[in-house]
Design a binder for these strands. Structure first.
Lengths: 232, 232
DNA sequence: CGCTCCAATTGATATTTATCAAGAGCCTAG
DNA sequence: CTAGGCTCTTGATAAATATCAATTGGAGCG
């Protein structure tokens, strides 16, 4: 691992408060690796051998049951997965695969658990990270239980808009097929939901989203901080 | 707070590894209180003033949006809510109310955060608790995204059966209205799903569930440890 | 350039789920 | 008792969503 990479990683909230000696020891056993698109990094049911930190690219978390598949989340830099399985020394509840060429840190789970037990600064950082993860899932759960599928799409677009360079024109960051699965609908249904949003101030052509009337869209979507604000 | 209560609480995984002095200090500011049925203990959006540990009774966690309401979880002894909001010093994402007369510990959030920062044994216990909470929500999320509503009911019954004194005959622990909301369906739909399970080895009369053919029910429900096993 | 592949869309239809309305059963206060 | 209020159930219908089949339309490639 290069020195500038180590410096960058050392500055992450998760590692910032580790004692220097522990940080060095933990990262002696770490890998920084670049994976091509479509690599399966974790398979649900298997034991969590590695804790992952995404440095570049993106990772899809998904789950299967009875022949069905659902995308549960996508992870972007600089975020982590799947911490809870590592800490509990339990099986992954979700599978993970790269959506594009991605660079990430792999930390052996046993090392993470050892340092978590020995370094209280690290333990506290893990608490904050886990609390964050927990709240993200709760928000997703509220989203899917309280909203219809076009409502979920409308709010998704508002959330994307909030992080885009140009809030009124941006590109979808996923294939529509995957977006549909993430939003809990079929691809056919997503197509129809997209058309339905034309009457609520949104125009989607190919991968480009243009929000032509924010007030109209907000009136329909009714975004709520307790579901849609990623910072709280 | 009575001494025997304190001894019982001290033995909980969350507090077991706290230093004695810190435990005493934390519980000097604690309340143990008994609430009647239907008391709202937390309202979503408000700041987390207290961290709760349920000693007796049960608590419903639910959320509202746009005039709709959904039950997200029910908390039984000896479990906690809502830790993540307390740790992050953020707003509750869910509301909480007692489902029956319930006794619980209330710990001021500021005290919890202070001890979390100062006591590494406590910090580590919180990590494990949070990791557990996270995995519970992920399982719920998989349940609702991957299964139809009668499938969710069938698997719910199998999970209840696993904890019942008599696995083949037990009572529902909630009003059907609430169970319907928890399972993500309307009460009318729950009634119909219950009838539909007659052909899969289940008979429900009033509140009593009798599983007359486990193999038949399992064939239909296809329970999966990665969704239905609360211990992993 | 034309071919092929695959994602995306569209239309028709089926299934699932929700809504609305009515009735049955049960609990409890008076 | 019994009347009222509640949950639960049932039936009829509507709405939402999924499925199936066919077509469109890029993107990559020889």
């Amino acid at each position: 691992m290069r020195q500038d990479e180590l410096t960058e990683i050392r500055a992450l909230p998760l590692f910032r408060n580790m004692e220097a000696e522990n940080f060095d020891r933990l990262f002696r056993g770490a890998y920084v690796q670049t994976f091509p698109q479509g690599v399966e990094l974790a398979r649900e049911g298997e034991m969590a051998d590695f804790f992952h930190v995404v440095l570049d690219g993106s990772v899809e978390l998904f789950a299967n049951w009875n022949g069905r598949k659902s995308t549960l989340a996508t992870i972007h830099p600089l975020s982590t997965f799947i911490l809870a399985a590592t800490i509990k020394n339990g099986p992954y509840l979700m599978s993970a695969q790269t959506l594009e060429k991605s660079r990430m840190i792999l930390l052996p789970s046993t090392d993470v658990r050892a340092h978590f037990a020995a370094d209280s600064g690290f333990a506290r950082a893990i608490v904050l990270e886990l609390a964050q993860c927990y709240r993200v899932v709760v928000k997703s759960h509220k989203d899917i239980k309280l909203r219809t599928s076009p409502e979920r799409l409308a709010n998704y677009l508002l959330r994307q808009s909030a992080t885009a360079a140009d809030p009124s024109s941006f590109d979808l960051k996923m294939e529509k097929k995957r977006l549909a699965s993430f939003l809990g609908m079929t691809p056919e249904n997503l197509s129809r939901s997209i058309k339905a949003l034309n009457t609520h101030g949104v125009e989607i052509a190919l991968n480009n989203v243009r929000i032509v009337d924010f007030n109209l869209l907000r009136d329909y979507a009714k975004p709520d901080d307790l579901i849609d604000n990623p910072t709280i």
